[in-house]
Structures are given as structure tokens and as C-alpha cells.
């Protein structure tokens, strides 16, 4: 009787963890959705300025970064698969690889920001304020959206770091994968946000 109850409780907790995580992602969807809405309204108003602003973006780094993030999603999905098969070591390596790819993404992003800032293109800068209004908005949106995305990715890297610890300690194991799966859900969501950010900023002019 007692054993049956724990099995039921286990299923209940697992289901709750899943539902909770998906619900959280819906809130994130609305969070980024409102930003996309703002972007679309201003792009509708200032199409030419957005076109001009997007000339500053580097399609190469943007594309490479997209590929990096897609790859990291795959490695994390594989890490979940691995732990479900009981391959703890494989899962650990894949998690480390995911974190490393996240860091690569951030590094490339850092250089993109750096190039723009070096040109004097950052919010409230004298150079920017002389540009047409639509371009001021474009760069504002660029920094706000990619910045908040990067912030989410940093959180993701930290979270995967914790998962790595749990996996090493055996807290996450073949029977108990919910945490790692949830970390994965979050990571993939951040990936999806980028999938939409990429055409918004890098494919406007080309």
C-alpha cells in the first residue's frame, strides 16, 4: 500500500514538474511576444530606417551563432536521451558541450556588440541620437532584445551547470530525469526565441 502511494506520488510530482515548466515557458512566450509586437509596430512605421539600421549587422556572425545555438539544443536533447538510457558519463559530456556552445554564442555576441559600440552605436550615444528616429528605435530594439535573450542564455548556462552537478552526484539518474528535461525545455525555448530574432535583425536588408 505504502509503495503504491509513493509510486502514485512520484508520477504526480513528475507530471507537476512538467506542467509547471511548460506553463513557465508560456509566460516567457508572452514576455518575448510583447517585445516582438513592439518591434513589428516600429518596423511597420519606419521600414526604411530599419533597413538602414540592419546594414550594421554582420550576417556571418549571426548565421554562425544561429548554428551554434541549434547545435547546443541538439547536444542537450542528446544529454537527456543519454541519461534515460543510463549512460551517465555520456550525458555529463554532452551537458558540458552544451554549456561550452552557449559560451561560444555569448562570445560571438560580445564581439557583435563590441563592434557596434566602437562605432558609437549604443543607446543614448551622441552618434545614435543624430540618426533618424527609426534607426534610434532599431538599435534600441537590437540591444534590448538580444540583450534580454543573452541574459536568458546566461541563466540557461548556469542552470545546465547545476544539472551537471546533479548528474555527477547521481541525483539526476535513469529514473529521475525531470530536472534535466526541464532544463532542456528552457534551453530549447531560448533557442526558439533566437530562431525568430535572427531574421528580425540579420535578414532585414539582404
Amino acid at each position: 500500500m505504502a509503495e503504491m502511494e509513493t509510486a502514485a506520488e512520484f508520477r504526480q510530482n513528475r507530471m507537476a514538474a512538467k506542467y509547471g515548466m511548460w506553463f513557465f515557458l508560456y509566460t516567457e512566450l508572452l514576455f518575448f511576444g510583447a517585445m516582438f509586437l513592439l518591434y513589428s509596430v516600429y518596423r511597420y512605421r519606419f521600414p526604411l530606417d530599419f533597413h538602414a539600421g540592419a546594414k550594421e549587422e554582420n550576417l556571418y556572425t549571426g548565421s554562425i551563432n544561429t548554428l551554434v545555438l541549434l547545435t547546443s539544443s541538439m547536444t542537450l536533447a542528446m544529454a537527456v536521451s543519454a541519461i534515460k538510457r543510463g549512460q551517465q558519463k555520456v550525458s555529463e559530456r554532452l551537458q558540458m558541450l552544451t554549456m561550452a556552445l552557449g559560451v561560444v554564442f555569448l562570445a560571438i555576441k560580445y564581439y557583435e556588440w563590441h563592434w557596434k559600440i566602437a562605432k558609437g552605436l549604443y543607446p543614448n550615444s551622441p552618434v545614435l541620437l543624430k540618426l533618424p528616429k527609426g534607426e534610434i528605435l532599431y538599435f534600441g530594439l537590437y540591444y534590448a532584445l538580444t540583450g534580454l535573450h543573452a541574459l536568458h542564455l546566461i541563466v540557461g548556462i548556469v542552470v545546465v551547470g547545476f544539472m551537471l552537478r546533479y548528474t555527477r552526484k547521481g541525483v539526476i539518474n535513469r529514473e529521475n530525469t525531470a530536472r534535466l528535461e526541464n532544463a532542456g525545455l528552457y534551453w530549447h525555448f531560448v533557442d526558439i526565441v533566437w530562431i525568430y530574432l535572427f531574421p528580425l535583425f540579420y535578414l532585414v536588408t539582404k
Binding site: Y42, F46, K133, G134, L137, G140, L141, Y143, A144
Partner: peptide, 18 residues
């Protein structure tokens, strides 16, 4: 907050915002 601290003018007409 970003508008006040960083000068991102999303809602500031003088910077194109609405």
C-alpha cells in the same frame, strides 16, 4: 526603466517611440 537609465526611447516621441 531602460528608458530612464539607458535612454532607450521606446515610448519617447523625441526618439521615435510611441
Amino acid at each position: 526603466i531602460m528608458g530612464r537609465v539607458l535612454g532607450i526611447g521606446f515610448f519617447d516621441p523625441s526618439r521615435g517611440g510611441d
